[in-house]
Structure formats: C-alpha cells, structure tokens
Design a protein around this nucleic acid. Structure first.
Lengths: 209, 209
DNA sequence: GAACTTGTTTACAGTTTTGTAAGTATCTCA
DNA sequence: TGAGATACTTACAAAACTGTAAACAAGTTC
C-alpha cells in the first residue's frame, strides 16, 4: 500500500483534548442515554484512538467523573450568569433561571448523575448555587414586604426548590407526560412554564397574614 | 464426585419466572443505576442461569422493554389505587398521589425510561392516567366553585402536571439539592412536600377573579 | 539541532457481555 | 405410564469493552 504521507497526526494541548473528548462524551450521553458512554464511540467521534481517552482520563470511570464535574460546573456557571443581571424584578430573574434549569440537556445530565451516584456521599460541585439563589430571592422579598409580615426563610428556600424540581422534572419527564396529558407537545410545555411562573410570582408577592 | 441427588431443579410457570426475573432486574436497576442491567447478575440474583432469562424475554432488549412496560403499568395501578378512594377532599386525594409519585423507586424507573427512550415515539403504557386525574380534580373544582368563576380546564391540567413533575423531580433530584440547600436531608424533603401540598390546595381553592 | 516531554497510535490481552445450540428435567395430559 | 411440551442447564461462540505496553511523532527547551 502507498505510504505516501499518510498521517498528519493532530496534536492538541492536554486541555484542548480533554475538552473535545468531554464534548463528544456529553453529546453521546445526551443523545444515546446512560449506556452510550463507550470509549470507542467517543474516540471515533473525536477522531482519535480510544487509548488517547484513557491517557487523559485514566479510566472510563475517570471520564465519567470528569464529565459529571464539568456538567455541574457548567450548570453552576449558567445559573450564575442568570443570577447576575443587575437589579431587576424577581420575575425577570426567575425567568432566566427558568431558561437554564428547563434546558433538557442540563436535566438529562443531572438525571444521569442522580441515577449513577444515588448512594454517593461526595458533595456535588454545584453546591451552594441554589442556596445563593434562595438568599437573593429572600432578600428581595423581605425588603419589599411590609415589616409586619416578612416571609419565612424556609418559604423562600422551598420556592427555589419547587422551581428547580419542577423545571428539571418537566424537562425530563415532560415528553412522557405530554403523551398522556396534552395534545400538542412543545406548546403545552411552554404554556405550563408561563403558568408556573405566574403561580410562583403570586405566591412570592402575596402579603403574609 | 458424588452425584448423589444433586439438583432439585426449580421449575416455575412461565409467568412466575417472568415475574421473579423482572423483580430482580428492577431491583438491580434501582440500586445500581442504568448500567446495572446485566443478564448474568440478574440471573444470579434469581438463582437461574442467564440463558433462562433469554428464554423468557428473547433478548436483553426484550427484558428492558418488558421491564419498562411493567413499571408503567405498576405506576398506573398504584395511581389508580390512589385515585379510587371514594369521595374525599381533594387534599386527601392529592396526598395519596403524593405518596405514590414521590416514591423514589417510581421516579428512578421513570427517569431511566425517559433517558433511554428519549426520541422514541411509541406511546407509553401509562397513558391517560394523569389525564383522568386531571379530570377528577377539575370536576371537583367546578362543582365547588361558585358558578360565576369556574376554573379553566387547562388550569387543572397544569396543577396535575405540576404535582407530577415536582414530585418526580424531587424524588430524583432531591438528594442532590439537599446537599446544596438543606442541612438535614430527609426532614427537609418531607416538609417540602407538606409545603407544596398547601400551596396547591390554596391555588385550587382560591376563588377566581 | 539534540534531548526531552508528552500527546497519540498500533497491537494486543483479559474480561465481560449477549446470544446460540443441544441436551436434560419436570410438568401435564391422554 | 408413556409422550409431548417447555422450563432450564451446560457448553460454547462471537463480539465488545476496558485497559496495557511499546513505539511514534509533534512540540519545547537548552
């Protein structure tokens, strides 16, 4: 066979290589489900041989851990970007949180994480983001409220928790529920989010007794 | 070796065999995550050889499909049991729905289903259960409401949808969120459910404008 | 430009996994 | 009680998977 000038071998920096590998792995995971994290396939997507992946991540498990870590950090970054938007109404802030948490990519990755690490005690990298969000929300409410009826701190935390689980849950289970509840899929999901936003807003702004 | 009376081979009916196999598979799936559906392990749990599983389910994929189907049917049965409870308040009804949907086993199984069949159009066996629930809820509301302000049908559907995604989401993502939000895990999750129940009840019974 | 570092490949090994073929044991039924 | 059906087992095959070892090549440094 002609051995003319066969391989212009690409050589990335370690950081670049890790990134493109994680990108491919994440894509596989999102599109193919939890069983689709195969070294060979990922390597093929990137265009390298599979030992290259092992070189960068030690083992398949190392790749999975790195992926989970990056997914959490990414979610944190997106949430942070949503949070830091100057001083706007709680409604606007919530709307941006809706966008990032309702993204089915995040939900899928987080679900995979939850299913994989169910009895793992290791703290998740994301930690504290939602607590911060709860803090901001609570601060705003306490400021707006008449001083006779400040909301309880726990109530604000639960609001955030509700938003989180409802959006993540809807992003994940929505397609299934749509088939049994709604006729038109995407439209119903959109309207549901608006409805939820209004419900939350009403609750948040309702004067305490 | 002594061949005295070696094997009192157990022989189940096909139905029984399928059941115990699916039980073991479900247990594996719940405890070990989505990658834990291995024929050898399941067979070992049941105490049979792995080809016995293939005999009953054709292939590993057939087992997975049967498992998904049974999980959906089981959820439907549990929901049905929760729904059919004579005439009680919407709060009591919701509370029993809370119990069954908030069960982390159901949530995990459903999440696995959602992740595995993301772009599958095949209708899920569960179909219609939640629609029925929405119907019952709506009927009760319309009856109770003053005839000047009946709630919209879509509002009742969204209430059901919120309950479903929030409970499933909380069962699945709750443990993760707990680490970033709450100090005491289980207790917080319980209180959150109560809080949600109250929020829903308030919304459902609030007179329309 | 020689030496060194390190990203990458090829070739291979060991294990695990699903699946098949053929025989065996247990139940049912005439 | 004999014959048939079928749940189940043993043995094996083929493929896929992760992981290892050694060599190779693209940068980097002195």
């Amino acid at each position: 066979m002609s051995r003319t000038k066969s391989k212009p071998r690409v050589r990335r920096t370690a950081e670049q290589a890790r990134r493109v590998i994680l990108d491919a792995a994440e894509r596989r995971l999102r599109e193919g489900g939890p069983e689709a994290l195969r070294l060979r396939d990922i390597a093929a997507d990137v265009g390298v041989s599979h030992p290259a992946i092992l070189h960068h991540f030690e083992s398949r498990d190392g790749l999975a851990r790195a992926l989970q870590s990056r997914a959490m950090l990414g979610l944190q970054a997106d949430l942070l970007a949503a949070l830091s938007g100057g001083d706007e109404s709680a409604a606007d802030l919530l709307e941006r949180v809706f966008e990032t948490l309702g993204d089915s990519g995040h939900a899928r990755l987080l679900a995979w994480y939850a299913l994989a690490n169910q009895h793992a005690e290791e703290d998740v990298p994301e930690g504290g983001m939602l607590a911060q969000l709860a803090g901001e929300l609570h601060g705003g409410r306490a400021q707006r409220a008449s001083r006779l009826a400040p909301p309880e701190r726990e109530d604000s935390e639960f609001v955030v928790r509700l938003v989180a689980v409802a959006l993540l849950g809807d992003a994940l289970f929505g397609p299934i529920l749509n088939r049994s509840l709604a006729s038109d899929a995407g439209e119903s999901q959109r309207r549901f989010r608006l409805w939820l936003a209004e419900l939350i807003a009403e609750h948040v702004d309702r004067p305490r007794r």
